[in-house]
């Protein structure tokens, strides 16, 4: 037995370890948010404690060797997305109606920000070397400076300890362009589309539609 107790409860450590597979951020970054325990509590509250434990079991199994949405049953898949959304934005999202019904949740299926500091700890901002709007300001005139390129897939995988055997060490810009070209066919539905009104929460925004050559979308 370790004579010095770990500063973070074991269940939180295990939650963070699994969250690396969901978020693509290393354990250091996830612990550094200071939000891990609150997110675990929030997810348990939203899904139900025993149901969330079941989800964690299924997730652990699906992570070997590499996690993909198809490796989870639909409701677990939606929970995985919700937990990831929580890490990325600090908000619990609106779930797919089918998953909400399947979970027999008693609370309304609506998006809410967990706490003001959860918002400022959202991971989405650091994906593009940004900072949360309204917090952690980078300083006068910094907006004039050319932003650094976001990390490559191989760099992210290495940082998370999730390298694949075929990963190249230093992908060139050409490689990055190739990756982008591969996605072109389904890029639009990975991007957000217009909100029909300002009150549509970010988790209910529809995906973008493919563009027609004339410029007015189909």
């Amino acid at each position: 037995m370790n004579p010095v107790p770990h500063p973070v409860p074991g269940e939180v450590v295990r939650f963070v370890d699994l969250s690396v597979h969901l978020t693509g951020f290393p354990v250091f970054d996830l612990h550094a948010t200071g939000m891990a325990e609150m997110y675990l509590d929030t997810a348990r509250q939203q899904v139900g404690r025993s149901r969330f434990d079941e989800f964690l079991k299924a997730l652990r199994k699906a992570c070997a060797p590499r996690l993909g949405p198809a490796k989870l049953e639909p409701t677990d898949r939606e929970i995985a997305r919700a937990v990831t959304y929580l890490w990325y934005t600090g908000a619990w999202p609106r779930l797919a109606v089918a998953a909400h019904a399947d979970l027999r949740r008693e609370m309304a299926n609506r998006e809410f920000v967990v706490t003001p500091s959860a918002y400022t700890e959202g991971l989405v901002w650091s994906t593009f070397h940004g900072h949360p709007a309204g917090a952690k300001p980078p300083g006068y005139g910094t907006w004039s400076i050319e932003p650094a390129a976001p990390p490559s897939l191989a760099e992210i995988e290495r940082e998370c300890g999730l390298e694949r055997k075929d990963a190249t060490d230093h992908p060139t810009e050409e490689h990055r362009q190739d990756e982008r070209a591969d996605e072109a066919a389904f890029a639009a539905h990975r991007l957000p589309g217009p909100r029909v009104a300002r009150d549509v929460p970010p988790s209910a925004v529809p995906t973008a539609r493919a563009q027609e050559p004339e410029g007015n979308p189909a």
Binding site: R81, T84, T89, A91, P93, L95, A96, V97, P192, G193
Partner: peptide, 20 residues
């Protein structure tokens, strides 16, 4: 795209495939 689409939060939604 914050005003038009609710980005960058909605980017997370769309990339995840969240919301059904």
């Amino acid at each position: 795209w914050s005003w038009a689409t609710g980005a960058p939060m909605s980017n997370v939604t769309s990339a995840l495939g969240l919301g059904g």
